[in-house]
Design a protein around this nucleic acid. Structure first.
Lengths: 228, 228
DNA sequence: TCATTGTCAAGAGCACTGCTCTCGGCTTTG
DNA sequence: CAAAGCCGAGAGCAGTGCTCTTGACAATGA
């Protein structure tokens, strides 16, 4: 993909990547809302206005960083989804997502923290954002095919609007029972709620070193989602 | 409590409240990281430097707003914890927390969103922050006393560090079995993960009008936590 | 080969931010 | 009634995102 014809185009692509790299490094130290175009340009040895040749605004830079973060997390989750046993795979995905979040807390906050005020995430972010939930759904689908999925006794059948909403997910994992599709969304929200609480300091005082709590939760949520 | 003796002290208390009120109003429109002391002072008709007589820094103002938000949410949850039936009470608490979050999304983001960069939450915030989890624990404790709590078959006994960490919670709800104390933390993280996803736009495209999903989840989580 | 076209970094400048300091006026206190 | 402490106003510093203009350079077509 580096077949940019002219030297100018290649230089432009390289500098664009370099800007994002510096921005990511600054992000890791000062956080998202303190990310400064002038500081980036200073570190690059250029003048601030020159950055606007590559990113039309601070928001556009943030969008690029957000998409990169979603893709990095999605790739980490997809890589983990290779173990043979469904439950082992489930635990590996959980560990991969948490591991990435702990390695890049500021990028995690960028995509799963409070929305940046005045910033509207463009449509281009939804596809990268859906990679992690798709990994979970795909695992459930494969577990069903392998006879390793069962609806727990107390999982209610979705009704009304909820039944209609599961139809969208049904297109992605057609063999998974609707009751488990709803539970997939529940465990999805639990996973990221737990990680956010750990990273944002809400667990301090109770489950502070969260390793064992996380491992136990991952196992219980696997059972909750029907894996066996 | 309005027995501030001198006129100056009363004026000071009033102005402090007024500053916080204006700050909250601005928070609701522009978001936390765009909250500007100068804009607040402009709306109050005073000069920006005068604000520093009341709040030593922007961070100190934010801390005051954070504590107020935790207390408002905690009070809403506590008010809802009055129904006779444990499951009904559980659903009422869930609805109250979600209702408050949807009514004050920016204040919710302030306390459960990404931490503000360079801002360290002082120790004074942890007591207000613990009010909601205490409400959940208290309900479980009372349900146990009423014979409405049972450990589900697949709830594992906590071991190792996790068992030690539950001891802290055990002091707050001594009759609740340790396995359910761990589950209480799980449902706590799920509750706020779900609300954050709804408010921060992560559910758009799947469970977008989240009312029915939320209601179903609340019921399933009540069962998961051992309520019956 | 040469002139045109488009891209680029630089710099000045605007309106804004948090924060500090000094200055007088006012209120409370002894 | 004077001393002490609190208060708002204003100027100023260093920083921010962003816009506009200028001159240099590279890529293109005649």
């Amino acid at each position: 993909m580096n077949a940019g014809r002219t030297a100018r185009e290649r230089a432009r692509a390289e500098l664009t990547d370099e800007i994002k790299a510096v921005a990511r490094r600054q992000l890791a130290t000062v956080g998202a809302e303190a990310l400064s175009l002038r500081a980036i340009s200073r570190e690059l040895g250029m003048v601030s206005s020159a950055l606007y040749r590559y990113f039309a605004s601070r928001d556009e830079l943030l969008t690029a960083l957000i998409i990169d973060a979603y893709n990095a997390l999605g790739a980490a989750a997809e890589e983990a989804a290779t173990a043979g046993d469904p439950v082992e795979e489930w635990l590996a995905i959980y560990a991969a997502v948490r591991g990435w979040a702990r390695s890049y807390p500021q990028e995690y906050a960028l995509i799963y923290g409070s929305p940046i005020s005045g910033y509207q995430a463009p449509q281009t972010t939804v596809e990268p954002a859906s990679r992690v939930p798709l990994v979970l759904l795909g695992l459930l689908q494969r577990a069903q095919a392998a006879g390793r999925l069962a609806v727990p006794d107390d999982a209610p059948e979705p009704e009304g609007l909820l039944a209609h909403q599961t139809e969208v997910l049904r297109a992605l994992a057609p063999d998974v029972p609707p009751a488990l599709l709803v539970r997939a969304v529940i465990v999805w929200t639990q996973l990221f709620g737990m990680i956010s609480f750990e990273l944002f300091g809400q667990l301090v005082g109770s489950m502070d070193p969260a390793d064992e709590f996380f491992a136990s939760t991952a196992r219980q949520m696997a059972a909750f989602a029907g894996l066996r």
